[in-house]
Design a protein around this nucleic acid. Structure first.
Lengths: 216, 216
DNA sequence: GTTAGCATGTAAGGAGTTACATGATTTT
DNA sequence: AAAATCATGTAACTCCTTACATGCTAAC
């Protein structure tokens, strides 16, 4: 029996992270998930509600029937169920944001981890960013190799597509470079000693691709 | 009975398109699928082989045991099974590439359709490209709206992510613009009469994003 | 008065992955 | 002699979507 059922680690992570700011009900949560997961990959209620039930069953969040003005005024709308993070839930999330392995920088997960960098330690942030960059550099090498080998036997449209993909990865690498420099600066401000990089803080302009979590 | 089982319309489409060039065996097919579907979304054998079986069962392709030098020399390696498109298969594919609706320009499918533009009629190409562009322009409006509304209550990392996503979509729109202009030129060359656009043929440089089929 | 948005949920199913099973050949 | 690459396949499982079920309020 029990045996919980549903998982969806990524979804769980995103939900816990969003509830960290403030309690939210399902409907609102879903909209915010769009920001964190990207407009593609947006989750449906058919995934979200069972996930919330599961988190409740595991004691990481608790339901409370429309907190503030429950029975009195403002009683318009259907009864909304707000979810609040428990102490266990906070602890679990805190543990999740210390992870700095491939799980954190692979395509599907990187975007979500980045979204919660505000609650992630500086050294973990740096390792995730660098992990992702070297992952992408591997990919770049593979793509360049394959393009070089097959370029002449590809028609113009396929070639366009390949080229576009390649440039997309190059852009993400540049973007990551900017974020990494920024992290180094933060680090240097915090503990002066080792002199490292020196790029300007990068405005939101060195960017232009999609893969993290298909944020677009 | 029968009731075929497996589908995966996108995968089927990609397989038929690749076999249109030449017969291939599963292992090789899988590598080429990487080019068409993008390195992310690359398919596993656990999906590919059942899909091939299904296409055989439906008479769209046929197996032939390692065509050329089957029993004689070169008999190294395990027996490879090459798949060849049947007349029905060709017909089915030809029908699929005339479709110019949302199925062809949504995120998951657009890249594959573009990859087979070499076998797609000019007017269909144009409608797909324009359909995708207007789809992305809707998305752009939604993203800009949401960013404008929430900008001040987002932390720097979430903001970076949003901004990056936004710029990614803007880039894809520009890229599509180039492709559309190119198509108009082809059209004008073919039937002189209506004077329409005039951009240069665009080298592989107006690009830089990811979403089509996450080509990167 | 009907469409759109708010709000929560379940059951069935689709599309894919991982892990397993098997075995030859080439490269290190 | 080990590791990588070639080559095919199946069963179990995961994650997510769609379609359904329900009902209220606000705007056009």
């Amino acid at each position: 029996m029990a045996r919980a059922a549903r998982r969806g680690e990524l979804l769980e992570f995103a939900v816990l992270g969003l509830l960290h700011e403030a309690p939210l009900h399902g409907y609102e949560l879903r909209k915010r998930l769009g920001n964190v997961l990207g407009p593609l990959r947006a989750i449906s209620y058919g995934s979200l509600y069972p996930c919330l039930k599961d988190l409740v069953a595991r004691g990481l969040i608790v339901e409370d029937q429309s907190g503030e003005a429950a029975a009195s005024a403002l009683a318009g709308r259907r009864a909304r169920i707000s979810y609040t993070l428990t102490a266990d839930g906070k602890e679990h999330f805190a543990e999740l944001v210390t992870r700095a392995g491939p799980e954190a920088w692979e395509d599907e997960r990187f975007g979500v981890h980045l979204a919660f960098f505000g609650r992630t330690a500086g050294d973990v942030r740096l390792r995730i960013l660098e992990g992702r960059r070297s992952r992408l550099e591997e990919r770049l090498a593979a793509l360049r190799g394959s393009l070089g080998r097959t370029r002449e036997r590809l028609d113009e449209y396929t070639l366009q597509l390949q080229q576009y993909g390649l440039e997309s990865v190059e852009r993400e690498v540049r973007w990551l470079g900017g974020l990494i420099d920024h992290e180094h600066q933060l680090k240097a401000e915090h503990d002066p000693g080792a002199t490292r990089p020196s790029q300007p803080v990068q405005g939101p302009s060195g960017a232009g691709q999609q893969s993290p979590t298909a944020h677009g």
